[in-house]
Amino acid sequence: MIGFLVFVVGSLLASLFLSFTNWNALSKPQFIGLKNYAKLFFDDPLFWKSVKVTALYSLSIPLNLVFGLLIAVLLNQKIKGLGLFRTIYYLPSVIVGVAVSLLWVWIFNPRFGIFNLFLAQVFGIQGPAWLADETWVIPALIIMSLWGVGGPMLIYLAALQNVPTSYYEAAIVDGANAWQRFLRITVPMISPVILFNLIMGIIQSFQVFTPAYVMTDGGPNHGSLMYVLYLYRHAFQWYRMGYAAAQAWILFVLILGMTLVVLRSSAAWVYYESRK
């Protein structure tokens, strides 16, 4: 336990200290105050580009929340083969990493990939160049992230199964239709896990690295320069450790801030049964 605290808290403080220094990882760190932060905010257009790209990518959070819930609701209709469907939908969440990223490069291949073939044959649309197109590269990564919708879905499903049937029956007696029951019973009852999935979504989507590195290397024209990829370049390609530490701390404050905002707002929309 002590070992754990040393690892975590110690490394946090160390990176805070480093963020005030100019350090190439070889010579002695040189204290430069807030200069790293000043440069990031006012003199590094690529930093803002990486923030923009990451913000755009975070559109995947609401999409994952909605699709996850939709599938979970369908699965919760007392159907046969629940286990099989659940396994299929969850399967992509088991296999994250390089193999999957490379698979999606091939899927998004504009000419020989299955995605544009699907668009052409089913909708008669000529698909874009996806990963090779600055405009479409982030949408492509979002589509790929939706493949992992099984993660949030699984958590919704378990929560749905915990909602007592008697609540729905009482609502039926009172004449509520299916949509009203969903909005007035289902959503409030599972709101704590919506909150959980939302926070996990924020944390995960702001830290995406592997797809951006493996699939596009931040390109084309920095169109997929995700925040952590830019951080990685400073730290481990250019050995500007102080600068990268400043980036890491900005990311930390950003995620923490958003999590706190979500948590504070949650008092208004999350329903805890035990606190009636």
């Binding site: 480093l18 926070i199 944390i203 951080l231 995620i255 923490l256």
Partner: peptide, 11 residues
Amino acid sequence: MLPFHVRLIPM
């Protein structure tokens, strides 16, 4: 909740 990447550099 901590971003893993904050710890990456010190580690």
